[in-house]
Design a protein around this nucleic acid. Sequence first.
DNA 1: AATGGAGGCAACCGCGAGCTG
DNA 2: GCAGCTCGCGGTTGCCTCCAT
Length: 232
Amino acid sequence: MVRAPCCEAMGLKKGPWTHEEDNILVSYILTNGHGNWRALPKKAGLLRCGKSCRLRWTNYLRPDVKRGDFSKEEEETIIYMHAMLGNRWSAIAAKLPGRTDNEIKNFWHTHLKKRLNPNQFIKKTKPRTANPDEPKEEDKFEDQISPVFIQNESYFSENITESNSVDMKQNSIDSFEEYFHDFDEILWSEEFTVTGEEEDGSIGLNFGKPSLSNEDSISFWLNLLAESGNLE
DNA sequence: AATGGAGGCAACCGCGAGCTG
DNA sequence: GCAGCTCGCGGTTGCCTCCAT
């Protein structure tokens, strides 16, 4: 199959986005929706490829993108989900409202990965398609989880009191199961709902459905653009 | 104050999946 | 069923900032 060229180079801009480009993209999407990403930049008057626009929107400009440091809970979720799913960042991001796969991926590589023993970290990326011959995700869970968490001394330092390595290993698994018992139920329940503005100022989300209504999104950006003087 | 290295993050690239005609 | 296309994902790169010397 012949792949369609993504950015037929000529004249298309690359590199960091400017505020003006951001404003154009946001205004266009809020007015028209993104529709066909490939056609969007031309319609919006941007010298970018559709891919670049989509990435910019999903990772940075979307109103429900949560910026700022990851909370302890979010870190724990990432570690837990990564132990279960491997490098399936989009799947992990789906469990962290307001966080993007790119952000999580970066956070993992720059912060969390360091806490793990690299020699023990052998989990490979899972293929996106389910192979019927392979064991189910749940069946493989134990095999995946132990090397990561057992080696993560800092993570379990509060729970592990035994110095004996064998006991420690078992304790780690027990601690893990105990520690994440409630967590698991929350993560795998479809209703992971937070609404309205949170106490910390972050945007509330209805997990499992669009986090903000279109109307809310428009209001958000109209206000923002109006404040910055970029929208009449 | 200058400089070089390390770390962090935004953005790009290439591939596979899924949709459509 | 096939070919062409778009979209989404994960890996990687490169720039910018910070910090140590």
